[in-house]
Each structure stands twice: as structure tokens, then as C-alpha cells.
């Protein structure tokens, strides 16, 4: 089971390593969004600083839509999804494998973006452990919901428009909780970031559970 999870993760990461789609398109996209927010808000340095957390996680959400679309495309081309199922791999293993692959890619993008907000937004890091823990947990939440909804819309004709409509509201709590945790990690607001991190974890458990229960049905029928 765990071996199968890693098998799927490894497959997705290897496809990414060879195609470099995330690296060549998603990273520049993320940095451009950050820079554009910088242009839009730079008139007031205090506003830019106060908005850093929200801008950061909003950008992650946009990036996640691209990453999930990519992850879904891998499976629907050439009937790869059917082949995975015929290979006797448990749908749960496919679910966690793909979630892990998206999470690892997103986490890499986020690390670059942390550099971006320090460089462009003058952000100062008050607590590195909180910052990194938030990135890890929030990324898991995003990937867990994204993988589930990606499989859900895989065979919908209007996939590209339906995915954001479904995914972004589902991820709204992640945006809120991760932004508050970042506010603490960046020392912007008076909040307890670790508490928000705990709520993020709760969200991650809920969504991973729903994914575990529903993914097989979606792979086979939808």
C-alpha cells in the first residue's frame, strides 16, 4: 500500500521532472502574480506588508488550480487512469500518491515564493518553524482537496472553468487559516498562528478522509 503510494508519487514527479511544466510555467506565473500585487499595492508600504500573507496564499491557490489541472491531464490522456486501475493499484493509494506529488511540487513553489515576498515585499520572518509548518500543512490541505476535485472534473467537458468554481470555495478556509498563521509567522498581526495551524490540520484530515472514501468511486464511474 505505502509502496503503491510512492509508486504513483514517483511516477507523477518523474513526469514533471521530464516535462518541467511546473518549473517552466508555474514558477514564473507565481512570481509574476506576486510582482503584480507589488505594483498594485506599493503606493503604501504598510498596506503591502499587511497584505503579504493574503497575497501569498491567494497566489498559492491560483498556482494550485494550474497544478491540479496538470495532474489531472496526466491521467486522462491515453487512458492512463484506466491503466492504473487495471494495474491493481488501490484507488486510495492513487489518491494519496497524486496528493503527495502535487504537495511536493507546490511546496517547492512556495519556498521560492517565500524568497519572493522577502525580496519584493520586504517581509521579515518572525518565526521560521511556524512559517514552514504552515507551508507543509496548508500545502497538504490544498493538494488533498485538489486531487479529489481534479478527479471529479476529469471527464467534464468544461473542466477548465468548473475546476476553479469548485476548488476555490473549498479552499477558502485554507486561505483564511494559512493567512492568519502567516500573519503570526511574519509578525504582522496579533494572532496565535499555531492555533490556526491546528485548524488547518483539522481541515486536512476532513478532506483527506472524504478523498479516501470518494476517490475510488470517482475513478471508476465519473
Amino acid at each position: 500500500m505505502l509502496a503503491d503510494v510512492w509508486l504513483v508519487t514517483n511516477k507523477d514527479l518523474r513526469i514533471e521532472w521530464r516535462s518541467r511544466v511546473t518549473f517552466n510555467q508555474v514558477v514564473p506565473f507565481a512570481l509574476i502574480v506576486l510582482v503584480l500585487f507589488g505594483f498594485a499595492l506599493d503606493t503604501n508600504r504598510a498596506v503591502l506588508r499587511a497584505a503579504t500573507s493574503g497575497v501569498f496564499w491567494l497566489t498559492v491557490l491560483f498556482v494550485a488550480v494550474v497544478a491540479v489541472t496538470r495532474s489531472t491531464m496526466i491521467e486522462i490522456s491515453d487512458g492512463a487512469r484506466r491503466a492504473l486501475l487495471l494495474g491493481g493499484i488501490e484507488p486510495v493509494a492513487i489518491y494519496f500518491g497524486k496528493t503527495l506529488a502535487i504537495a511536493i511540487q507546490l511546496f517547492g513553489v512556495e519556498l521560492l515564493m517565500v524568497g519572493g515576498v522577502i525580496f519584493f515585499f520586504d517581509a521579515t520572518i518572525a518565526s521560521w518553524p511556524l512559517l514552514l509548518a504552515t507551508c507543509v500543512v496548508a500545502t497538504w490541505c490544498v493538494a488533498a482537496s485538489g486531487t479529489l476535485l481534479g478527479a471529479l472534473v476529469a471527464n467534464v467537458a468544461a473542466r477548465d472553468t468548473v475546476l476553479p468554481i469548485l476548488l476555490l470555495p473549498v479552499l477558502a478556509p485554507v486561505l483564511i487559516a494559512a493567512s492568519r498563521a502567516f500573519d503570526d509567522a511574519l509578525g504582522v498581526l496579533v494572532v496565535d498562528g499555531w492555533v490556526w495551524l491546528g485548524l488547518l490540520a483539522a481541515f486536512g484530515i476532513v478532506n483527506a478522509t472524504l478523498g479516501t472514501l470518494a476517490y475510488g468511486t470517482l475513478l471508476e464511474e465519473a
Binding site: 471529479l152 472534473v153 467534464v156 467537458a157 468544461a158 468548473v162 468554481i165 469548485l166 476555490l168 470555495p169 473549498v170 477558502a172 478556509p173
Partner: peptide
């Protein structure tokens, strides 16, 4: 959030 998710639900239904 619930409202937006259910709007998404209807959009998904409408996508056919």
C-alpha cells in the same frame, strides 16, 4: 463558503 460551494454544485450539474 457554503453558498459558493453549492453554486459550484449547480455549475457542475449544468456542465452536463
Amino acid at each position: 463558503i457554503l453558498f459558493l460551494m453549492m453554486v459550484g454544485y449547480l455549475a457542475l450539474r449544468a456542465a452536463g
